[in-house]
C-alpha cells in the first residue's frame, strides 16, 4: 500500500441518528483499498462502538484512522467526563448509560468489551473531567 493513509472525522455529539457515519465512511474506504473483509468488519465494529460511545457519553469528538502496511490504527479522542474506573468499564454488562440510551439499543455495557474483542491492541488514556483517548489497532 506504500505511504500511510490518514482519515479524520469529527463526530457530532448532538445527533444520535447520524452516529455511525464516520465508521460507515471508513468501511467504504477500506473496501476500496482492497482490505480483507474480515479485517474491515473488525475495524467497522470496533470503531462504530467507539463512535456510539462518543455520542452517548462525551458529546462527540474526533476520530483519526490511519492505514499502514502493517495495521489499521483508530484514535478516538473526546473532551467528555472521562472514565472513572476503567477495569469496571471493561466488564461486560457494566454500564453508566442512561435509560434513554438503552431504549435506543445501546448502553448494555458491551461497548468497550466489544472494542477490545475485535481489535488486536487497545489502549485507554482517560483524565476525569478532561476527556478520553482510545487507541485501537487491527493488524493486517
Amino acid at each position: 500500500m506504500g505511504d500511510q493513509l490518514i482519515f479524520t472525522y469529527i463526530v457530532d455529539g448532538d445527533d444520535f441518528t447520524r452516529a455511525g457515519e464516520a465508521s460507515s465512511s471508513v468501511k467504504n474506504k477500506l473496501k476500496m483499498l482492497g482490505v480483507d473483509s474480515d479485517v474491515i468488519r473488525k475495524v467497522a465494529i470496533a470503531m462504530y462502538e467507539g463512535e456510539i460511545n462518543m455520542v452517548i457519553h462525551a458529546d462527540g469528538g474526533t476520530i483519526t484512522v490511519s492505514v499502514s502496511d502493517d495495521d489499521i490504527t483508530m484514535v478516538l479522542s473526546d473532551s467528555g467526563p472521562g472514565i472513572p474506573d476503567i477495569e469496571k468499564a471493561m466488564q461486560e454488562g457494566y454500564s453508566t448509560a442512561k435509560e434513554e440510551v438503552r431504549s435506543l439499543g445501546f448502553g448494555a455495557g458491551m461497548g468497550l468489551p466489544n472494542m477490545k474483542r475485535f481489535t488486536d491492541e487497545m489502549n485507554i488514556d482517560t483524565v476525569i473531567g478532561q476527556g478520553t483517548t482510545i487507541t485501537m489497532k487491527v493488524y493486517l
Binding site: 441518528t17 455511525g20 465494529i45 438503552r102 439499543g105 445501546f106 458491551m110 468489551p113
Partner: peptide
C-alpha cells in the same frame, strides 16, 4: 440490543429485531 448484535452476530446474514431506529441499519 444492538451491542449484543455487534458482539455475537458476526457470522449472521439476517438480523431480526423489534428495535426500530437508524442504528439498527447502521449495525
Amino acid at each position: 440490543m444492538m451491542s449484543d448484535v455487534l458482539a455475537y452476530g458476526e457470522k449472521c446474514s439476517i438480523l431480526m429485531t423489534g428495535l426500530c431506529n437508524s442504528q439498527v441499519v447502521r449495525t
